[in-house]
Nucleic acid binder design. Structure first.
Lengths: 253, 253
DNA sequence: ACTTGGTAGACTGTCTACCAAGTGCCATCC
DNA sequence: GGATGGCACTTGGTAGACAGTCTACCAAGT
């Protein structure tokens, strides 16, 4: 079964380098579980038993409990007192609400990013746009999706607002999870919009940047709905055991 | 010492009435600790020791640990591995960032509230405005502050977006904590703005509602800065033990 | 056929005890 | 005075125990 690697995988930060801070076990467990939820190893609605997970991951109950509680707070699982945790089953209107929240958060981030952007930031953004477009044109969906994530993440970081960063990161991860069962579409349009967005930021035009980001998110929401409507009955049907649902393609947001 | 009351205090919901679901201890501990942080019983920067808190609250280490971890995730305390938790000491730019995040969240909420408002909602909003203004004019600051909170809370609820509600609630609580050491100002202007906001919502004018909320928050931020500058050296000085800092007045946001 | 009552098993929530490792502090030493 | 070493304290994690509660199932009664 999946066993936790206690290895610390901090991103390299310039300047002071903390020699080594062994990641708390609960953190690793948290990461492992979200991973398993996202990739479908732990299916939606499944009852998660503490000792079972503990056994899987080779740790004791305590770290698992703590991880589960965090997952509960962030909406990945639902904790029913006296019974246990179930992997969250998203309601149909939930994606809509997530995207609305994301629109607000990221559009504000874009506004602030436009306000604070440095030459260096803009260069990085442009580079990401180029790379992403290249990935898209060469048909490398995974690469395009990854670059898309990096671009959005960089923009929120550029806002210089840690709360926006935190919230947006949380929402983004959830969105990506829900999107998983959807086919990849609207790749080209997405990168055109990214270009416009980056242009607005580089010009320091706050309103235009915010507006561009909002429209970008809005288009994503529309695309999701269209797909939902297209293979609606397919997805609306009760989950069959025979559908492993692992690692489907992701939409380019 | 503060002892936990395990009493459940659910808000009354119409229709099905769940008899009684005993709150998990960790939840009560969490509530108790935030309470103590907000009201200043646990001063900023104070070192929190698990066994000590457990003794205070009459529970074992376990629920305390779990509560502390949640507090850490939400930014109320900083957890230093191997040493313990310290009550978070806000950086000066933090309030700014919180208010910026709040501006984004609540302004979007106002937009959606304007979109979805029912006759009933509008009536409640207007009532709150009236009550709040009355409180303000009669000099009942606590009442005005409470009503202000209820108004903002109702608006986010009206957005119908659970994520906006959650995030806004989190931010709001933090904001209220940081504000505590600030004097009450701008009461009259605040309620004038509320009136304009409610009017926009009742007319279903999304853009106007969003704009009104944004300006409202922005004014609050300015007011905070002015006060900060006014008695700047006072607050900037290192905390003296002699300053109990309990229950100071709150600004009307 | 439907409800009621009872029983059994499974899990969580919480407590206690314990140990290893990391951290901060203080006295000591050069 | 500044480095050093050691000590007390605290967390992080493990193990085991136990009560309360939740689910499911079965049997009897209506």
């Amino acid at each position: 079964m999946t066993t936790i690697s206690t290895g610390t995988s901090d991103p390299v930060s310039p300047g002071v380098r903390h020699v080594k801070r062994p990641t708390p076990l609960r953190e690793s467990v948290y990461e492992a579980l979200t991973e398993m939820i996202i990739d479908g190893t732990l299916e939606r609605g499944r009852h998660l038993v503490e000792v079972e997970l503990a056994g899987m991951l080779g740790v004791s109950r305590q770290p698992v409990r703590e991880a589960l509680q965090r997952l509960n707070n962030e909406g990945w699982v639902d904790l029913r007192p006296g019974f246990g945790a179930m992997v969250h089953v998203p309601a149909e209107d939930e994606v809509d609400q997530l995207l609305a929240a994301r629109a607000a958060l990221e559009s504000e981030s874009a506004r602030l990013a436009a306000r604070h952007a440095t030459k260096d930031d803009v260069a990085k953004l442009k580079e990401l746009c180029k790379v992403g477009t290249a990935y898209h044109e060469s048909g490398d969906i995974d690469g395009a999706v990854r670059t898309n994530g990096e671009l959005h993440s960089l923009i929120t970081q550029m806002s210089g607002n840690r709360f926006l960063v935190d919230f947006a990161a949380q929402v983004d991860r959830r969105v990506r999870w829900y999107y998983t069962p959807v086919a990849p579409v609207r790749g080209a349009a997405s990168w055109r919009e990214h270009n416009r967005l980056v242009k607005a930021i580089s010009e320091g035009d706050e309103d235009k940047a915010a507006q561009a980001m909002r429209e970008h998110t809005e288009h994503t929401r529309k695309a999701y709905h269209d797909l939902q409507a297209a293979n609606g009955s397919d997805e609306a049907a009760p989950e069959t055991e025979a559908t492993p649902r692992r690692r489907r393609r992701t939409i380019t947001s």
